[in-house]
Design a protein around this nucleic acid. Sequence first.
DNA 1: TTTATATATTTGTCACGACAAACAAATAAA
DNA 2: TTTATTTGTTTGTCGTGACAAATATATAAA
Lengths: 149, 149
Amino acid sequence: MNKIDLSKSVNHHIAISSIMIKRVFFKILNDNKLDITPEQWNVLYYLDKSNGMTIGELSKITFKDFANMSRISQKLENASFILKRRDEIDKRVFKLFITEKGQELNNQLHECAYKSTNIALNSLDDEAREMMIKNLKQIITNTGEFLNK
Amino acid sequence: MNKIDLSKSVNHHIAISSIMIKRVFFKILNDNKLDITPEQWNVLYYLDKSNGMTIGELSKITFKDFANMSRISQKLENASFILKRRDEIDKRVFKLFITEKGQELNNQLHECAYKSTNIALNSLDDEAREMMIKNLKQIITNTGEFLNK
DNA sequence: TTTATATATTTGTCACGACAAACAAATAAA
DNA sequence: TTTATTTGTTTGTCGTGACAAATATATAAA
């Protein structure tokens, strides 16, 4: 019988950190009166880098459920931050495009993300940050392999 | 204008890792036909260590909303994994107690948590794990300070 | 060509996270 | 003691996560 000690669990600390980081980002968004969620921002972020992605592509790159990405894109469309257009060739597919309004918002969101990063990572030096990313990538790979087999 | 690069963001990798770890835990729970969520397990975990905690205490220790902890405890009570009793002295307070049935489940959950930890942290040595916890604790402190000021 | 299967997306359900409002009991202030 | 404030909990709303079922289109197989 292997009893877990959460106070020494990497998994547990990742979960708590994730909650806290999201809360900080949320607060900064609210303080700046930006009516958008971190998840919705993720979509704007990727569309800004590569306009015209499909819902399926976005759900993969953001590690989200197709169903949830479908709903997130609906909300962004209702708020006129993106446009959805049927693909001419493959009529099952929707392509998403960021609007002018979405672009402007996206720029403000980058500032907010930058602020929240600084708050969360305060006092972590570059080496620590790189080490974190390396290990977290390994965790993402490990879990991905388990889930896809 | 500071544009964020998510592929180099510690925050972002923590968020993705957290999602993936939860998904692995969820899958293991399902594979073992255990009808409980990771969040509900957290409550059993702490009650097993310290029976009779209040909803408020549990919400603090698990970093959750009072309201959400209230609902999580309702579900655990409905499933007979815990009991809720009014405090005799302070009649606003509910104290929660893990039941026999809850104890048995908790033991199985520890095994599941152990498995999911091994999957996620595969190939991370002890030094890397300790470093992760140290840095994640720092992040939790940093974000906590920001949110409470 | 017809049938079966795969793919892209949507909708529904339930649990959880954030937040606001409400309520009761306890405590502090007038 | 009466009033105001604080504390512990609950309920409601909305967005999101997991999962199953449904729909439409595309592609492969018979």
